[in-house]
Simulated scan of single mutants.
Amino acid sequence: MDARIFRSAMPSDAKRCFDVETTAYDGDEAATLKTISKRIAEYPEGFLVLEVDKEIAGFINSGCAYDVEMSNEDFKELIGHDSTAPNVVIMSVVVDPAYQGQGLSTALMSEFVERMTNANKEIIHLMCKEHHIPLYEKFGYRYIQPSASAHGGIQWHEMMMNLSKA
């Protein structure tokens, strides 16, 4: 069995996370190294890394807001982010293609949801491509609407999950 470790990202992880991001997202969809570095620096508790055998295999990064406007491009740079806000906005869910097909996205999402629940967050928001909607529905998200965002020249879809302490 592979040794899997979940942890918050550190500044030294930025380059590897950028490399993973650019393998998973096309062109302008991927965050820049500068943006990933900023997300790690400003909200490490919202940047969950999954290591497999001491190699970053995937991650989820996010920010928090009181009022969520999914099409707000500035928020991707954490403009308006407030770590005390109850709403979490996922920016990326990424698994390196070399590690796909091993259930890592499910493991990442489960750990992320648990951490956000324990942090007393109320709602997790995300945008995804149409073909990922069924995947996120399996995780417990519900479809909201097509997004006004045209990030990367693509049609995105907004989804959300209400969190509750069980």
Score class of each variant (00 low, 15 high):
68 V>H: 01
86 P>V: 09
64 C>Q: 05
78 L>T: 07
121 K>Q: 06
98 A>Y: 08
80 G>Q: 08
32 T>V: 04
98 A>V: 10
47 F>A: 07
80 G>N: 08
34 K>S: 11
102 Q>R: 15
95 V>W: 00
113 V>A: 02
113 V>T: 15
16 R>V: 13
58 G>N: 00
77 E>S: 14
141 Y>K: 02
131 H>C: 02
87 N>F: 11
89 V>T: 12
146 P>M: 06
34 K>H: 06
99 Y>Q: 08
55 E>S: 09
78 L>F: 13
51 E>Y: 07
49 V>F: 02
109 M>H: 01
100 Q>I: 04
124 I>T: 11
19 D>P: 02
90 I>P: 00
111 E>F: 02
130 E>M: 10
61 N>G: 07
89 V>Y: 02
117 T>A: 07
28 D>A: 15
116 M>T: 03
83 S>T: 12
21 E>A: 06
43 Y>I: 02
51 E>W: 04
21 E>D: 14
74 D>W: 09
128 C>T: 14
118 N>C: 09
19 D>N: 12
52 V>W: 00
90 I>T: 12
32 T>F: 05
51 E>V: 07
142 R>Y: 13
93 V>C: 10
89 V>W: 00
45 E>W: 04
31 A>I: 03
36 I>W: 00
81 H>L: 09
113 V>W: 00
40 I>V: 15
83 S>C: 09
28 D>V: 04
66 Y>D: 14
38 K>L: 15
86 P>T: 09
96 D>P: 03
143 Y>V: 01
133 I>F: 04
62 S>F: 06
64 C>N: 14
116 M>D: 03
129 K>A: 12
141 Y>I: 07
100 Q>P: 10
61 N>H: 15
75 F>C: 11
15 K>S: 12
69 E>G: 01
102 Q>N: 14
75 F>H: 09
111 E>L: 04
51 E>D: 13
42 E>G: 08
56 I>F: 06
46 G>N: 06
13 D>W: 10
20 V>C: 12
74 D>G: 03
54 K>M: 05
26 D>I: 11
72 N>M: 04
34 K>A: 14
63 G>V: 08
137 E>F: 02
40 I>C: 13
